[in-house]
Simulated scan of single mutants.
Amino acid sequence: MPSQADLTPVMGIEDINAFIASVYPQLNDMSESYVTIAIVPGGCTVRLNADERHLRPGGTVSGPSLFTLADIGGYVCVLSHAGPDALSVTTNLTINFMRKAEAGPIDAHCRILKLGRSLMVFDCDIVAGPDRQTVAHATGTYSIPPKRT
């Protein structure tokens, strides 16, 4: 994913993972299923360490697990670039599933398309498997709360 020089992160990987663990502890529930692995100007990469609990019948990672990965990717983008406000929320998220994803590491490479004062638009290329093929693609919008004084 190309970096965007005009968008500078304000939080690093460790800060993001710690912040999410503190404001959204039920996400991982004493595991490390969803983690941030990279933050770049204008984007991030988040990983789902998919295991048995993420599978549907047939050994396929479930759609809700991949949808959550895309949503967390948007959350990390907005937190890392607009600042740590736990009340940033999804206003829209659309996902297209393209091929089967099996258990193992699944990465969502997320890119900020537009960062304004009240909204952030992003997309995610979700890749998995040994050949890192796209298994899903998502686009979404996050609402950014007004700055409090």
Results as ranks from 00 to 15, higher is better:
132 R>L: 11
84 P>Q: 13
11 M>L: 15
45 T>A: 14
108 A>N: 09
147 K>Y: 00
134 T>V: 08
106 I>D: 03
114 K>I: 02
39 I>V: 15
120 M>L: 15
93 L>P: 06
147 K>C: 01
4 Q>Y: 08
77 C>Y: 08
127 V>T: 10
8 T>L: 07
143 S>Q: 13
38 A>L: 05
46 V>R: 04
71 D>F: 06
17 N>P: 08
76 V>E: 09
99 R>Q: 15
11 M>W: 03
126 I>M: 11
126 I>A: 14
6 D>S: 15
15 D>C: 01
23 V>R: 11
25 P>C: 12
132 R>I: 09
122 F>M: 14
12 G>P: 01
133 Q>C: 04
39 I>G: 13
30 M>K: 15
88 S>G: 11
136 A>E: 02
40 V>D: 12
127 V>M: 09
141 T>I: 08
59 G>D: 02
16 I>W: 03
69 L>G: 05
83 G>S: 04
58 G>A: 07
7 L>A: 01
104 G>L: 07
104 G>S: 05
30 M>I: 03
38 A>N: 02
46 V>Y: 10
25 P>D: 06
131 D>R: 12
51 D>W: 00
104 G>P: 13
29 D>K: 14
6 D>P: 00
76 V>T: 11
50 A>M: 10
129 G>Y: 04
71 D>K: 03
95 I>T: 14
30 M>R: 15
98 M>R: 15
42 G>W: 10
52 E>T: 04
115 L>H: 12
44 C>I: 04
74 G>H: 02
145 P>C: 11
96 N>Y: 03
18 A>R: 14
122 F>P: 09
47 R>F: 03
99 R>K: 15
38 A>S: 11
53 R>N: 07
59 G>E: 00
132 R>C: 06
74 G>N: 02
77 C>G: 00
55 L>G: 11
63 G>Q: 05
42 G>E: 01
114 K>H: 13
16 I>L: 14
51 D>S: 15
61 V>D: 11
126 I>F: 01
60 T>M: 14
111 R>P: 01
138 A>E: 07
22 S>M: 13
99 R>D: 12
70 A>E: 02
116 G>T: 03
117 R>E: 08
28 N>I: 05
126 I>G: 11
112 I>M: 05
44 C>F: 04
32 E>H: 14
82 A>R: 07
38 A>P: 02
73 G>K: 13
88 S>P: 09
140 G>T: 08
82 A>F: 03
25 P>H: 07
13 I>T: 09
14 E>V: 06
135 V>G: 07
51 D>C: 13
58 G>T: 10
148 R>V: 04
13 I>C: 10
74 G>D: 01
26 Q>L: 12
8 T>G: 01
26 Q>W: 06
88 S>C: 14
125 D>Y: 06
59 G>Y: 00
41 P>T: 02
63 G>D: 12
118 S>Q: 15
115 L>E: 03
51 D>M: 06
49 N>C: 07
